[in-house]
């Protein structure tokens, strides 16, 4: 079973985000970038499956700037076998164009299983995996919290609004993962050394038309200054009064 894990380079969740000077993107200066946390969970599970003998090869695929080779080296250090970086000359792409570029490369890689996080934590769209499944005519399942090889496919538990659904997914397939599936490992020194020798192919990203363009990126609306109602249990009656009488929240 050959697995491709799609990973995205994103600002760390602890990063402060400011609009860039162009007013249409976010400022990358001074921001630390990481593999999007959900993608990292997908990668961890893929490496576990290869270590258990259920997968034969784990390839990481990313679309992004040339700097994303840093995140791909980290993925290799965590245990991926090889990496492909589609170097994007464009600073932004919409989800349709992103999926088109990834689909072109996935057709060439012809994996059995495509894994990715259910969303990237910068764009927050959560649609690229579904777009890929539809374009590639692959089976699709989302929000995996358990994932195992079974027969020639996968057995996946999905978290669906408080229910757990156990799903059989044939290959080829695209599966998105949710927190809880696996705990990403820290790359060992041995892994970091080994990653330097693993293949990381960089190639220009295929061009594709955007269906939408970003017209503005702004800070979120500021919240009005709040009120400290008091200290300890003595402040509770006032809180209940404000919630009930001023805000109608009860």
């Amino acid at each position: 079973m050959k697995i491709v894990v799609c990973v995205k380079r994103v600002p760390d969740s602890a990063a402060k985000i400011r609009p860039a000077a162009d007013g249409r993107s976010i400022e990358s200066q001074g921001v630390e970038f990481v593999i999007s946390p959900y993608d990292e969970i997908a990668l961890e599970r893929a490496v576990q499956l290869r270590e258990a003998g259920a997968a034969t090869q784990v390839t990481v695929l990313s679309l992004g700037p040339a700097e994303a080779s840093k995140e791909l080296r980290k993925a290799l250090a965590m245990g991926a076998d090889d990496a492909v970086l589609l170097v994007d000359p464009r600073p932004q792409r919409d989800p349709s164009s992103t999926a088109e570029a990834l689909a072109t490369e996935l057709r060439a890689l012809a994996p059995d299983v495509v894994l990715c996080g259910w969303k990237a934590i910068d764009d927050d769209s959560g649609v690229v995996a579904g777009l890929l499944a539809a374009r590639l005519d692959y089976a699709y399942a989302s929000f995996a919290v358990k994932l195992d090889a079974e027969g020639s496919g996968l057995r996946v538990s999905r978290e669906v609004e408080g229910r757990e659904e156990i799903v059989q997914v044939p290959t080829p397939c695209v599966v998105t993962v949710q927190r809880g599936l696996a705990e990403p490992r820290f790359a060992s020194l041995k892994g970091i050394m080994a990653a330097k020798k693993k293949p990381l192919v960089e190639k220009p990203a295929p061009d594709a038309a955007d269906a939408s363009t970003v017209v503005a990126v702004t800070p979120p609306p500021a919240r009005a200054a709040g009120r400290i109602l008091g200290e300890g249990a003595a402040a509770v009656p006032e809180l209940v009064r404000v919630l009930r009488d001023e805000l109608g929240a009860l």
Partner: peptide, 17 residues
Amino acid sequence: RDVLATVAGALGAGVAA
């Protein structure tokens, strides 16, 4: 969310989530 993404992919439509 899933229907949004798969319909957009199947129709070759644009998408914003």
